[in-house]
């Protein structure tokens, strides 16, 4: 089935609410996921997701496609709202480790299963101990699958800076886990 691209939908959405509905359906889960990993609870994630889309809709007329992909524009709105949220709440983002770690695949042997869960828990703890910018980078890169260029637009940094920061984040996180006896 033919799916219109973002540019076409945006042009239509300026005059047709249904077109914006299609944009919304396309991105709501991604934006929600990003926000959830940054604020750590469902209520605030829902509230901020609503605000992102209302803000995007009301500023759609001012959006101009000048090398900035629409997705990056949406994430940028979310990034700013989350920054305000953290400022207002005066706390660091907290995500329940149980919400982050994967459900381990069924196993016939209880001990290996417990080990896997323990590893995942320690890994999630190490991720949460990262500084906010690095954690945000991991979320954007790993759960959202964005390119370095797109992340650069969202975080206000160059593509090269993001590439370098991501590399350093992986290295230091891996080293931290190795120190704690995590087998990688």
């Amino acid at each position: 089935m033919f799916e219109p691209d973002d540019s076409e939908l945006i042009a239509r959405a300026r005059e047709d609410a249904d077109a914006f509905g299609l944009i919304y359906e396309r991105y709501v889960n991604r934006i929600y996921n990003y926000i959830f990993h940054r604020v750590g609870n469902v209520n605030d994630a829902e509230d901020l997701t609503s605000r992102v889309f209302f803000s995007a809709y009301s500023h759609l007329a001012s959006y101009q496609e000048q090398g900035v992909p629409f997705t990056a524009w949406l994430y940028r709105i979310a990034h700013n709202l989350i920054a305000n949220w953290h400022r207002d709440h005066g706390r660091r983002p907290l995500v329940s480790i149980d919400d982050v770690i994967i459900s381990s695949p069924p196993s016939e042997h209880p001990e290996p299963l417990a080990e896997q869960e323990d590893d995942a828990r320690r890994l999630a703890e190490a991720i949460q101990s990262l500084e906010p910018l690095r954690r945000e980078l991991l979320v954007l890169k790993i759960t959202e699958g964005l390119s370095n260029a797109e992340i650069g637009v969202i975080l206000g940094k160059s593509e090269g800076a993001i590439k370098s920061l991501y590399h350093r984040t992986l290295l230091s996180l891996r080293q931290e886990l190795t120190k704690k006896g995590f087998e990688l």
Binding site: N29, V100, I102, L138, T143, L173, L184
Partner: peptide
């Protein structure tokens, strides 16, 4: 090693969908 670590992270950071 870094690629393998990245894969481990991908398996650990679970994407969530909006209700």
């Amino acid at each position: 090693e870094l690629d393998a670590f990245e894969t481990t992270l991908q398996r650990t950071l679970r994407p969530v969908n909006a209700p």
